[in-house]
Amino acid sequence: MMDFRWPPPPDGRPERYRPPVNRGPQTGRPTLPTPPTELLATPHGVELECLATGAGHPVTVFAHGLAAGIPETRPLGSGVPGRRVFFQFRGHGRSAAPPGQWTYLDLARDLRAVADLYGATRALGVSLGAGALCRLLADNPNRFEKAVFYLPAVLDRPRPQIATKRLTDLLAAIEDGDAAAVAEVVALEIPAQLRNTPAAWAYLRQRIEQLMRDGLADGLADLPAQTAIVDRAALGEVTASALVLACRGDDLHPVSVAEDLAAALPDATLHVYDRPGMLWTDRADVRERIAGFLDD
């Protein structure tokens, strides 16, 4: 890690990797510093890392994307009324990593356990989390009153091969302790035109620090090749009103998946942004759209 020199900081001078100082959020930065979390014991025996903010009702649970976590999901809860519950899926952060091959059914159980224990009536899922939310609702169509699917990546067809390759490269880099290689993969999350900005550099350093500290479980490696549900027709019984958010130009989250999901849900609104990296390029609109949908 001490040999990490890429990408250069905004002033252009190379600098060795050092864990970032915990500072407040910077303008334009898509993550927030994470307050202390707690480990939640679940009925299915998998201990999950959780963070609850806000108070009162309604309660909304937030499910992150693959290789992401609570810090990347928290900005989506800005302005959402009531109590907001963020958690880490198995194999992420401080959550447990039980042995064996994991499926979207396992992720749906993680999501369901957190939602039940906190009494959540609404849910938001990002990418992998959106797939887990689909599986949960396919099996329990009356579980939530409202659901937000942010950048859904998979439904009843496997994800693109690029998703498997990116995760494989990330897992290998973390296993090797190669922070520069981790940076190469994580940088792809940032729109190309913003990668040399101070906000992008701060985001990149925070993500690298978290991944190098906590790692990712090998049990995640098979998930990109799996589908969330067997048949999208199972979503036809879902009673929750839904908001589906997608964007053009994102290879990991094709617009076609969002369109298929919105069509399969009985009561869904689809909104497609014109460019990828919505939290970088359309942050205010994303927050207002989500908060407005979840606000009674």
Rank of each mutant, 00 (worst) to 15 (best):
Y17W: 15
A147S: 10
R283H: 14
Q101K: 10
L155M: 13
E72R: 12
V185D: 02
V230H: 06
L204V: 09
A55R: 00
G45M: 00
R122E: 07
L265E: 04
Y150V: 01
L265K: 02
L220T: 10
D3C: 05
P25L: 02
G79C: 07
V186C: 05
Q226M: 12
G93L: 07
Q88M: 14
R287F: 02
E49Y: 10
S241I: 09
A181C: 08
R84T: 02
A199M: 04
D231I: 04
E47L: 01
V244A: 10
I208K: 09
R207W: 15
R83Q: 15
R213E: 11
D267F: 09
L167I: 13
L188W: 04
P81C: 09
L204S: 08
A225D: 14
V244F: 08
V85Q: 00
A234S: 11
A115G: 02
L32D: 10
A68T: 15
D222F: 01
D156P: 07
Q161Y: 11
A123Q: 01
Q206S: 13
A63D: 13
G129P: 07
T37R: 01
L270K: 08
A228L: 05
L66R: 06
G119K: 00
P36E: 10
A192Y: 02
S95N: 06
L137M: 15
D285V: 08
A163L: 08
A221T: 13
T121P: 04
A123T: 00
L261Y: 06
P75R: 05
D214N: 12
C50N: 00
A115H: 00
L220M: 10
A52S: 14
P36G: 02
T37F: 01
Y104R: 03
I190D: 06
L40W: 00
L223R: 09
C247A: 15
A153Y: 03
